[in-house]
Design a protein around this nucleic acid. Sequence first.
DNA 1: ATTCATTATATAAATAAAAGCATAACCGAG
DNA 2: CTCGGTTATGCTTTTATTTATATAATGAAT
Lengths: 119, 119
Amino acid sequence: MVKKQKKTGDYNIRVRVWVDKKNKPFLGLGRVILLEKIKKHGSINAAAKSIKMSYRQAWQLVKEMNECAKQPVIEKTIGGANGGGTVLTAYGEAVIKNFYTLQSKIQSFIEKDCNDFII
Amino acid sequence: MVKKQKKTGDYNIRVRVWVDKKNKPFLGLGRVILLEKIKKHGSINAAAKSIKMSYRQAWQLVKEMNECAKQPVIEKTIGGANGGGTVLTAYGEAVIKNFYTLQSKIQSFIEKDCNDFII
DNA sequence: ATTCATTATATAAATAAAAGCATAACCGAG
DNA sequence: CTCGGTTATGCTTTTATTTATATAATGAAT
């Protein structure tokens, strides 16, 4: 959940990034990983299990994400052959990519320009 | 405890910074504020009350900080005229300053170079 | 010597957060 | 039309975190 940064002497800088929409949490590393697992497993249920998260929490997180996003990040179907499932939308895919880009940018900056934290 | 960042469309980027020593948390915004309150009030007790934190937690935090720091960030005295107290060292003062400098640097970078988070 | 407000610390209580459970609706396949 | 596995959601239980309480030690001032 938390990325390590370049060492500065004996210390190392750690940073955590979120994207909010109107003060409501939209994206964080945990949520992004959940989206990735949904893509991989095809259901909220299986995704939650794969990261030892309760289904309820996973379901609430995707609900919040969908509420914040301009377009749905996932699409769900209830019932049917395998009971239903959830797939990541192309928009959701873009969201993941952009989040990682943002995070990498910040991390790179810290590694490059914040190694003068000597105390 | 959490700093707001420049808006990028309807979204805003939020970041939280910590400094660790050998994977142990050393500094975060909460701890820095606690140090500032200790400086202001002259005791862990009064500092904790001023930010509605339990004395126990405040005491543990300064203990951890002192354990991580190369030099003590505070100096305590037990007993005496007013029962004792705690003062911030010059080193602790430098620690506060450096933390804020680090945080500002990261925030400025985000405001300047991360406003392309459009999704 | 007594007092007083502090540090120091263990233990208990209270709060908050997460997980678990139960139940209903859904719908393609057999 | 029943079955299976999923989403959806309220309610309960458990777990984790934080705070509160209690007690001891300290030492300058009275």
